[in-house]
Structure formats: structure tokens, C-alpha cells
Design a protein around this nucleic acid. Structure first.
Length: 557
RNA sequence: GGGCACGUAGCUCAGUCCGGAGAGAGCGUUUGGCUUCUAACCAAACGGUCGUGGGUUCGAAUCCCACCGUGCCCGCCA
């Protein structure tokens, strides 16, 4: 009897049965759109071996077979465990894309950390991923920046906070903005004329003007990259806005927009009257210059031409702009289903917003320095009571401090839903206790510790027999290992890397329970072999999961 | 005023898309556990009007409506 005669058993109830108890099933939905979920069996074991079934109240529970567990052990023994089959689909993930006006600060740090994790997840889920940083090197802010750099004398500026190009140059940017705020009308007008000239030069594709602006853009970008590389976050390509002004594609977009029925010419400016939007979208100023969105349209058509999908990580303040962009792209005949935006809420300070212009931001470099420093202190304070006799060297301490310090920052950010507001507080961001990166990293170090002690780790391919692993803790760990591929798929489908973070936490809990209850090295031969294989599978799984989050997996701590 | 987010334990958050088993973690508080593979660990206790009010449903933190609170946006800036 599968169902209690009178028990409520809706379709949803059946779905629950599939999803919660049976690790080999996954909920598969068509990408992005809510379609009725169906159960799908994943491994060959689950298709070919009968399962046991039990009834608990109104629920029917399916239990995996032993062969399924054997397969999990074998699969998780492979280095690439959790990597899904190629989807034969390319996707460009654009993230960070911060204006090159100053050092990367914590308010924006959510973007590269989330973006990098999304790219990692998509890559692991079988997509052919490219990581892009879209460089705004053409707008009014950059013209202003170039003007300020050429106008003000270094002697009038305060010492830079660090000796690196981004910290050096941001002083000119701040000075320029401050000047415009305080200047008399005449002074402002004169300055605006010069800024306007730069803007016009860029618009005309003038090489000399491009070079003038590039004087600040290039070194600024180098400096900012240095910060991001510490995370570490890197890019396949820095795509410049000016590229689309130079190759004529933006001009072509303007012409096509002008030809649409939604185009209106009002107050000397070309605008788009988009359905569903109250405000018209200006795409050509009255002085004939383009706007950010105009150039971004060309940028996105370029993405569509070169990739199957495009994902953009954006601050929530760009929500409206992103929606209008999508609408305009649609108007131009693009398939906007290819485009996904992931919006995140800015990180604020207890006292308010961070601003590059006003100089009120906490620099990412400072956060990372502080985090590594706190991690170092933590390690040193633990050296006394350390049981393991592996004599950490000074280099080890430094390595662990870096792995833990950077990991803690990334985990704190990537583990939360992007839409939730975050207020930055040092102590909270750099808490090394449970539900943090070190908690998970520690599990990896423990697996390495055990495997190092074992003179030889049994080969995993096919010889493992999971039936020796019958304690609740062993089973629970095996279950959570088996779930990893489904977690990868779900994180990729939802563009939600925080589900991987949630998974790592749960994984660590299961492993630690196993660690407490099940001695490995001192166990009887058969049990010892099986547990060693289990630990090896756990190490691979947690290392790969941390890798998706961009967090190092230390071999010792 | 309009649009988009967010509101779950004292605090920080999962769970919400796709409704189902007395709503889960961590921090903090209280208590217990290192001669035993690393105690950045584990076990236990305490802690909840899931913002409020309606509705749909056998069943709602989850779906719908209204309201309240908070954030963001509504520029020929990005």
C-alpha cells in the first residue's frame, strides 16, 4: 500500500516525496519560467535498481539502493565530482563593471564576489562561461575625470592612501567634483566647456581624445584589478564602451531606434517612448552625444551575437535602467530571454552610504588587510593549544591567514541572498565561528589530516562497498555528498550561488557529526577502508563546493 | 505620488520562485565534552503573533489582495 486511503495526497505532496527524501531525484524546471516540476532520476543506479519504500504518516518515502551509494562513492572519488555534462551553451557573465573612478570599495564588493561565484557555478554546471568587466570609459564622469587630471596639480592634493594608481588618481576625481560644487558660476561654466569638449571628442571617435581619457582609465583599471585579484577575482575580458562608439555599432543602433514607432524627437533630444514605462528613455542628447544606455544597447547586441546567454550582475539602483534596456532590446528585435539580470542591494555603513566621490567608503583593500590580520591573530592564539603535531611554519601561518581571511569575507557576502540589504560591521563580517568560511574550511583540513595519516587510501573506482557504511552518521554524510550535483544544477538554474554556501554549511555539520562518532584510522580493516573512501569523497566534495564560492580549501589549519 | 525590492528567535540569516512531516541554523545566554583521526569542533537547554489584516486551499512563512515599516529608483548621470 503506497497511500493511506484517506490521507491528503495532492500533486504537491507527491512532489515533496520526490524532492526531500530521495537524493537522486532533482526538480527540473524549464529555465527561468515557472513550469510544472517533474521528478527526474539522475544516476544509472536509481534507474536500474529497485528502491525500498516506506510510509510515514501521509508521506511515502523512497530510499536509495546500496548500488546507488556505491556509485556515489565512486563518483565522488573523482576530482571533478559535481561537474555536470556540457550544456553546449555559451554564457557571458558580466560583473563588477565599476566605473574606473577610484579604488574598489566594500559597497561594491558584493558585485565581483557574487558575479564570480555565479560564473563558477555556471561553468561547473556545464556552460561555456566568459567573464566580462564592462568598462565605462566614455561617459560624462570620465570626461570630468580626464579634465580634473589635466587641470589640477599634484602639489595641491593630499597624500594618497596607498601607493598605487587607483589611490593616486582618485584624488583628482574627488578634487574635480569638489571644485565643481564650490566653484562660481563663471568657473563652473569654463570647466563644463572643457568637459563638454572631451565628451564630444569621444563621441566623434577622436583618437587623441580617447588617449587623453585613457591616461586615467588604463592605470585606474590596473589598480582596481589589483584589489580584485586579491579576492581572487579575474576576468577573461575588459570590454570598453568606446569600442562600440568606434566600430559604428552604436551609431547603427541610434538609427534603428529612430526608425521605430516608439521614437520621438522632443526638446531637441531623441527619446524612446517605451510601453510600461512612465519616463521616456533619452538615447541621444540635444547636443548629439549618446548616453550610457545607448552604448549599452550596442554592447548587448554584441553579446547576443557572440554568446547564447548573457547574465549581468547589477546594483539594485540600476533596476529601472536594466528593465528599460531589456525593453529597448526587445524593440530592436532581440530575444531578451537570453538576458538575465541579477540585482543586489548595496552594502552600507552603519552611518550611511559609501561614496567614492565623497571619500566615505571603506576600501576593499582595507577590509581584506584587516580580515587577514584578524585571521593571523586567531591562528597565533591557537598555536599553544594545538593538538596536531605538524609544526606550522611561518609560511603556513601566512598561508592560512590569507585563506581564512579572504574566505571569511567572501563567504559572508556570497552566503546571503543578494537582494537582502547588508550593513557592514567589522565584527560581523569577520566572525570566524560557525556559519562562516573557516567552519567549512576546517572540515576540509580535517579530511586532509585523516587522509595524510592513512598510509594508503584505497582506490575508489568501483571497489567500494557502501554497505559497510551503515551508521546514521555515515549514511547522512553519504546522502549529503550525493546531493552535490543537484545543488550545482539548482544554483545554476536560479543563478543563486548562496544555495551552495548553505549546502557547505550543512555539509560541514554532517561531516563533523561523522567525525565525532566514527573513528576512521583506528577502525577495523573493512570499516577503515570504507570510511577512508568516504572521507576522500567528502574532501573532493567540500573542496569543489568551496571552489564554486571562490574560497580556498586549506590542507591544514 | 508611481515603480522595484526587503520584513522569519534579542542579533545575523536559510527556507518563499515550485504550498505539505510539531518553522531551521549560527551568534549571544545557560550547561556538559579535548591522554582518543585538528575543540576554528560537538552535545543539550532557553528563545517564534514567519510585519499586520483579509482571501484561495484539505493544508499558507510560501500563492492572491489591501495596509504598515525600511531600502533603492523615477536625470539630456552612470
Amino acid at each position: 500500500m503506497l497511500y493511506e486511503p484517506n490521507s491528503p495526497m495532492s500533486a504537491a505532496g507527491k512532489r515533496r516525496v520526490c524532492s526531500s527524501r530521495f537524493a537522486t531525484t532533482s526538480l527540473r524546471r524549464s529555465r527561468r519560467r515557472s513550469q510544472r516540476s517533474t521528478c527526474r532520476l539522475r544516476t544509472s543506479a536509481s534507474r536500474t535498481h529497485p528502491r525500498t519504500v516506506s510510509v510515514a504518516g501521509p508521506y511515502v518515502n523512497f530510499h536509495p539502493t546500496e548500488a546507488y551509494y556505491d556509485d556515489t562513492l565512486a563518483a565522488a572519488g573523482e576530482d571533478g565530482y559535481g561537474r555536470l555534462d556540457s550544456k553546449e551553451e555559451s554564457v557571458v557573465v558580466e560583473h563588477t563593471s565599476a566605473n574606473p573612478t577610484g579604488p574598489v570599495h566594500v559597497g561594491r564588493a558584493r558585485n565581483p564576489i557574487i558575479g564570480d561565484a555565479i560564473a563558477n557555478v555556471l561553468d561547473f554546471a556545464g556552460y561555456d562561461v566568459s567573464r566580462h568587466y564592462y568598462v565605462n570609459d566614455a561617459g560624462r564622469q570620465m570626461a570630468l575625470f580626464a579634465w580634473a587630471y589635466e587641470t589640477f596639480d599634484e602639489a595641491d592634493l593630499s597624500e594618497p592612501e596607498r601607493s598605487r594608481a587607483d589611490y593616486d588618481l582618485v584624488r583628482y576625481y574627488r578634487k574635480g567634483n569638489a571644485f565643481l560644487e564650490e566653484a562660481s558660476d563663471d568657473e563652473r561654466e569654463a570647466a563644463e566647456d572643457e568637459i563638454q569638449a572631451i565628451l564630444q571628442g569621444l563621441e566623434a571617435g577622436d583618437e587623441a581624445t580617447f588617449e587623453r581619457v585613457n591616461e586615467v582609465v588604463e592605470p585606474m583599471l590596473d589598480g582596481m584589478s589589483s584589489s580584485l585579484e586579491r579576492l581572487p577575482v579575474t576576468y577573461d575580458e575588459f570590454v570598453r564602451e568606446t569600442r562600440f562608439m568606434g566600430d559604428g555599432s552604436m551609431d547603427e543602433i541610434v538609427e534603428r531606434l529612430q526608425d521605430t514607432e516608439n521614437a520621438v524627437y522632443e526638446e531637441d533630444a531623441w527619446q524612446l517612448d517605451l510601453p510600461d514605462f512612465e519616463k521616456k528613455l533619452v538615447f541621444l542628447r540635444s547636443d548629439g552625444t549618446s548616453l550610457y544606455t545607448t552604448r549599452d544597447l550596442a554592447h548587448h547586441e554584441w553579446k547576443f551575437a557572440n554568446f547564447d546567454r548573457a547574465v549581468t550582475v547589477l546594483g539594485e539602483e540600476h533596476g529601472l535602467q536594466a528593465a528599460q534596456l531589456r525593453s529597448a532590446l526587445d524593440l530592436l528585435g532581440n530575444d531578451t530571454d537570453q538576458l538575465d539580470s541579477v540585482l543586489y542591494s548595496h552594502v552600507n555603513l552603519p552611518e550611511g552610504k559609501m561614496s567614492t566621490r565623497a571619500g566615505t567608503a571603506v576600501d576593499l583593500d582595507d577590509l581584506l588587510d584587516e580580515s587577514i590580520q584578524r585571521a593571523r591573530e586567531e591562528i597565533e592564539s591557537r598555536l599553544e593549544s594545538r593538538i596536531r603535531d605538524d609544526d606550522l611554519t611561518g609560511d603556513d601561518v601566512e598561508r592560512i591567514a590569507r585563506q581564512v581571511g579572504l574566505g571569511a569575507v567572501r563567504y559572508d557576502i556570497v552566503s546571503k541572498q543578494p537582494t537582502k540589504a547588508i550593513t557592514f560591521e567589522w565584527d560581523r563580517a569577520l566572525d570566524f565561528e560557525a556559519q562562516s568560511a573557516p567552519y567549512v574550511q576546517y572540515v576540509h583540513a580535517r579530511t586532509c589530516g585523516i587522509l595524510d595519516e592513512a598510509s594508503e587510501v584505497p582506490a575508489l573506482d568501483g571497489v567500494m562497498d557502501a554497505s559497510t557504511l551503515m551508521t546514521p552518521e555515515e549514511r547522512a554524510l553519504l546522502d549529503v555528498i550525493a546531493r552535490f550535483p543537484a545543488v550545482v544544477e539548482s544554483a545554476a538554474d536560479e543563478l543563486a550561488p548562496h544555495v551552495v554556501a548553505t549546502y557547505t554549511r550543512e555539509f560541514a555539520e554532517r561531516f563533523n557529526a561523522f567525525y565525532r562518532e566514527c573513528p576512521v584510522l583506528d577502525a577495523e580493516s573493512e570499516t577503515r577502508e570504507a570510511r577512508l573512501a568516504l572521507v576522500a569523497a567528502a574532501r573532493t566534495t567540500v573542496a569543489n563546493a568551496l571552489g564554486l564560492l571562490g574560497i580556498a580549501a586549506p590542507e591544514s589549519m
